[in-house]
């Protein structure tokens, strides 16, 4: 365990040095993410110019939900995105051999190689959005609520990570698939919607089958309405199920990996 932590620290140090070398890139990408977050927040503020509630959620409740969903996404971007994105390319080009040759867990080595400091910086902005919304709502969460919120965010991060690993693993089967990572962003759109807005078949698909709604709604519910066992259990169960499936899919795919011939 400590060995893996040390490896992670070494990767983090390398990423920080790299960022300091390419400062302009860092500012540009931080700005890019900031803009995209802004676009999502603007959508909320424009809609609430014309209505008081969406599925029973007031403006600042919705802001808290969107902030939470952005927070999970920023963490994913910061900790894993670059490495996983490269994994897809490496599988296609055959450069993935490099990871297979390393003495360590393959998925760990391949998904923690690079940190994106811009994503991590913007996670502070997302936290700011959540804090601002909580302030406007006059919420006073207890220390336990905050701890639970953090745990829920962590679970959400694992679920997003698992979804991304699965999408990228498709490259083992369809080597010509370009830009398949983009599908992740489409699914992430659902996590900015309140659970109450989903009805009928949409509720079955996006709330029960895919974890995209529970990922953001469970933590937001804790801040808004305190500890609710049903939400917490649902999220923990979803985390275990999705992480397990992702590991299974990845290892199945790995068997098909044909090195540089692809």
């Amino acid at each position: 365990m400590t060995k893996y932590f040390q490896i992670w620290l070494a990767s983090a140090r390398y990423s920080i040095t790299r960022t300091l070398m390419f400062r302009f890139d860092f500012f540009l990408w931080a700005l890019v993410e900031l803009f995209w977050m802004g676009v999502n927040l603007l959508l909320i503020s424009v809609i609430y110019e014309h209505t008081d509630s969406i599925a029973g959620w007031s403006k600042y409740e919705m802001l808290l939900l969107v902030g939470t969903s952005l927070l999970v996404q920023r963490f994913l971007m910061g900790f894993f995105w670059s490495s996983l994105f490269e994994m897809g390319r490496n599988i296609k080009s055959g450069a993935f051999d490099f990871f297979l040759a390393q003495p360590g867990n393959i998925l760990f080595m391949a998904s923690t190689r690079k940190l994106d400091l811009d994503g991590l910086c913007n996670s502070l902005v997302a936290m700011g959005v959540v804090a601002y919304a909580a302030h406007r709502l006059n919420l006073q969460p207890s220390a336990l609520d905050l701890l639970l919120y953090a745990v829920m965010i962590f679970c959400g991060l694992i679920i997003h990570y698992s979804m991304l690993v699965m999408t990228i693993s498709l490259a083992f089967w369809i080597t010509s698939a370009q830009g398949i990572e983009g599908s992740y962003f489409t699914l992430a759109e659902f996590s900015r919607l309140p659970r109450e807005a989903f009805k009928g078949i949409a509720s079955v698909l996006f709330v029960w089958l895919l974890p995209v709604v529970v990922v953001s709604n469970a933590p937001a519910q804790i801040l808004l309405h305190g500890f609710q066992p049903a939400w917490v259990l649902a999220l923990v169960a979803a985390t275990l199920a999705w992480f397990g499936t992702a590991l299974f899919v990845f290892h199945r795919g790995l068997r098909r990996y044909a090195s540089a011939s692809s």
Binding site: I54, G179, T186
Partner: peptide, 23 residues
């Protein structure tokens, strides 16, 4: 690739339908 993108745009339409349906 384009077909996959077209397929995923259906999900985007679903988001639009759910969000604006609630509004």
């Amino acid at each position: 690739n384009f077909a996959v993108r077209g397929f995923f745009s259906l999900f985007h339409l679903a988001v639009v339908f759910i969000l604006w349906g609630a509004v």
